[in-house]
């Protein structure tokens, strides 16, 4: 996804003089050509995430389209108040491209983990949240949303699906229809879910935009009252949306996602997937239990 992000941003920077890419201590080498070509619009502000977000709000107020790229934990957790007040409350247009989703930076330890990113961002009014499953999906969603007048967070992850879907910002996809239950899966967990589901008679709904959440598709396509929610970050970020969409219904819910007290044991991400509860076996087991 990172390579695609660099390519797409370079294209936007070349054609739209309103675009400005603000890096905060990251990826200066990847963008070296753009930094040379458009020094006024592509630069590293330095390692000052809170100020970088406020600065980006100033750019937006001046009529620019800011793209701010830095590591996710420092962007979301250190600069939360700036995201909330300078962008969310003021409904300024801005694009935040986070690197290092959940436990992508496995070997770096706790400071660089950010599995709570989506749950935190969902508390910010007007904040749009995109969790693509592939680089192509990211590109589709990005191009549809980056200048729609609201702040948007794009979660770039190392984990990607092999399955490609044509995705539309703000809408979910029906992957398959079934009768005995519904699986709601977010972004890069789709491949694992498809393996875990196998030939079970369930509906699979695929979400790549989690804010705004597609209520309509869920209401119109839910099969029965059993729902398995599968998220690639801390579990339950979209739980509220699902209960809200189906309020008044008697629901039986099971969740797949990272537990808040999960322990990542360094090494590589793949090694940690079972302990984080995102593996095929865990998903299949939870689905089996739900359908019993």
């Amino acid at each position: 996804m990172i390579d695609r992000f660099v390519r797409v941003l370079e294209e936007i920077l070349a054609k739209d003089e309103r675009s400005a890419l603000v890096l905060s201590g990251i990826r200066q080498y990847s963008f070296r050509k753009s930094m040379e070509k458009y020094p006024e619009r592509v630069f590293d502000i330095g390692i000052m995430e809170s100020t970088a977000v406020g600065f980006a709000a100033g750019l937006a107020a001046a009529g620019m389209i800011p793209f701010l790229h830095t590591w996710t934990p420092f962007l979301i957790e250190r600069a939360f108040e700036q995201l909330k007040l300078d962008f969310g409350s003021q409904k300024l247009e801005g694009n935040f491209i986070g690197a290092g989703a959940s436990y992508d930076l496995t070997e770096l330890g706790e400071s660089h983990y950010c599995p709570e990113d989506i749950a935190i961002l969902k508390q910010i009014k007007n904040m749009q949240i995109v969790v693509p499953g592939t680089a192509t999906e990211w590109e589709q969603l990005f191009l549809q949303s980056y200048q729609n007048g609201s702040p948007t967070f794009y979660r770039l992850s190392n984990e990607v699906n092999h399955t490609e879907n044509v995705v539309v910002f703000g809408r979910a996809n029906i992957i398959q229809k079934g009768n005995k239950g519904t699986v709601v899966v977010v972004g890069p967990l789709l491949d694992t879910v498809l393996k875990a589901v196998g030939d079970k008679d369930v509906t699979i709904l695929y979400y790549t935009t989690v804010e705004p959440f597609d209520y309509t598709l869920l209401r119109e396509n839910i099969s029965g009252n059993r729902i398995l929610i599968c998220e690639p970050y801390n579990k339950s970020a979209v739980l509220y949306n699902i209960i809200d969409a189906l309020r008044g219904e008697f629901l039986k819910i099971e969740m797949v996602g990272i537990d808040i007290n999960a322990k990542c044991c360094l090494g590589n991400y793949q090694d940690n997937i079972p302990a984080l509860g995102l593996d095929e076996k865990t998903i299949a087991s939870k689905l089996q239990k739900l359908l019993q």
């Binding site: 400005a20 006024e40 619009r41 809170s50 100020t51 977000v53 406020g54 600065f55 980006a56 709000a57 100033g58 750019l59 937006a60 107020a61 001046a62 009529g63 620019m64 800011p66 700036q82 300078d86």
Partner: peptide, 13 residues
């Protein structure tokens, strides 16, 4: 920080 960003954006424009 917002004023700095706006001053920067003004110049870019």
């Amino acid at each position: 920080p917002e004023a700095v960003g706006m001053a920067y954006g003004n110049r870019a424009k």
